[in-house]
Simulated assay, not measured.
Amino acid sequence: MFSTRKNASTADHFRNTVAWITGASSGIGEALAVGLAGSGARLVLSARRESELDRVARRCHQAGSAETDVMVLPLDITDSDSMAGASAKVLERFGQIDLLINNAGVSQRSRCAETDLSVYRKLMDVDVIGQIALTQAVLPHMLERGAGHIAATASVAGKVGVPLRTGYCAAKHAVMGFFDALRAEVEDSGITVSTIVPGFISTPIARHALAGDGQPFNKSDEEISGGMNVDECARVVIAGLARGQREIPVGKGKEMHALWLKRLSPELIFNITRRRK
């Protein structure tokens, strides 16, 4: 049973909860899956690469999940027409969806003048439209039950614009706006909405980012490589979700100061970001 007690321990809160995670084949999504497995959740793992999802499922079993408590559900987040069918499969398997974590995403490393428009379209399709489509597929079930938790992985880039990430920043700003507005619509119906706001987390996101021509960037950023350990990130996020925290900032570097600096002194943050290369 999904615990609604604000003071419940993380393990108590997520025990037997059905948590559906997109982008579960690597990075933050993988770490969240393993962390929730250790908290007794039943899991639905989605991403495009089934072989990687199988690997993550094995890690979840090692963390304590029973074989029957992990569902591998390959999903192309850009295929909006498949969302209703995917949601039906989850409900057929587990009977409910307590927590949806919209974590699938792709980043970018290119200047605007050197970026093909198709790159911007892909960023929006993956990072924004895909999250909206899946949320729309799951939302009626949660509204009918009068309970549920929807989360989305945004970014500090969803609050602050920086060079080489015009499309990524635009997409993550859209994620923040959509899920903040959704919260205002559904919170009184018993549904919690959380935005996850990572700073620099040590994941493969930079290597998988898109260059201006749409090809993989295939390089690691020093800031990303030196960022917060992804398992530590997952622990912070899972604790925030258990508390029903509406916005969950997570990171350890100077970039986290930008979240409050943008509010207190926009002109200062504009001057700082324009000096970034």
Rank of each mutant, 00 (worst) to 15 (best):
F2L: 15
W20I: 10
A24T: 01
V34P: 04
S39G: 03
G40E: 08
G40N: 08
R48Q: 08
S51W: 08
R55V: 05
Q62R: 06
S65Q: 07
M71G: 03
S82K: 02
A88I: 04
V90W: 02
R93P: 05
Q96P: 02
L99C: 07
L100P: 10
L100C: 12
S110F: 05
S110D: 12
S118E: 11
V119W: 08
R121M: 00
M124T: 05
D125Y: 06
G130M: 11
I132Q: 09
I132W: 12
I132Y: 11
A133R: 05
L134A: 15
Q136A: 12
H141G: 03
M142Q: 12
I150K: 09
A151I: 11
K159I: 09
G161H: 09
T166L: 07
C169Q: 06
H173C: 06
E185W: 09
E187A: 14
T192F: 01
S194M: 00
V197P: 07
S202Y: 08
A211V: 00
G226P: 08
I238P: 03
G244Y: 11
P249V: 10
K252T: 12
K252R: 14
K254Y: 13
E255D: 15
E255T: 09
M256Q: 14
L264N: 03
L264G: 03
E267V: 05
